[in-house]
Amino acid sequence: MKAEIEKYIVANLEIDDAETIAMLIVAYGEALNENCAIIEAAAAAGDRQRAAAAAHALKGASANIGAQPFYEVARDLEKLFRGGGDEAQHLLQQLAELREQFIGEAAH
């Protein structure tokens, strides 16, 4: 996933220096962690509005950087929290797995 993001940054955002790319991946990782934490906590507390807002923020950041899998899960979560559905568990699980994968790749 990290490789796709790097490719996206070079191709679409025309940023080709490694240092900036690395900085952006770190910043995205921070936004990811922050928003995931909010989504999980808000979902557990039944605060759907806060969970939707964090999912929206994650969706935007992911769209910015071309993190397509995160973008899709965040989009579905936002929709779900705003719409009133209760199948969040599956999507939250999916988000946690993607996040783990990203952190693993980012560490190398």
Binding site: L13, I15, T20, A27, Y28, E30, A31, G60, N64
Partner: peptide, 16 residues
């Protein structure tokens, strides 16, 4: 933008 990552991205994008 209240999402700091978007601001960082814009700075990187427009720095040159």
């Amino acid at each position: 933008d209240d999402e700091k990552f978007t601001l960082v991205l814009l700075q990187s994008c427009l720095k040159d």
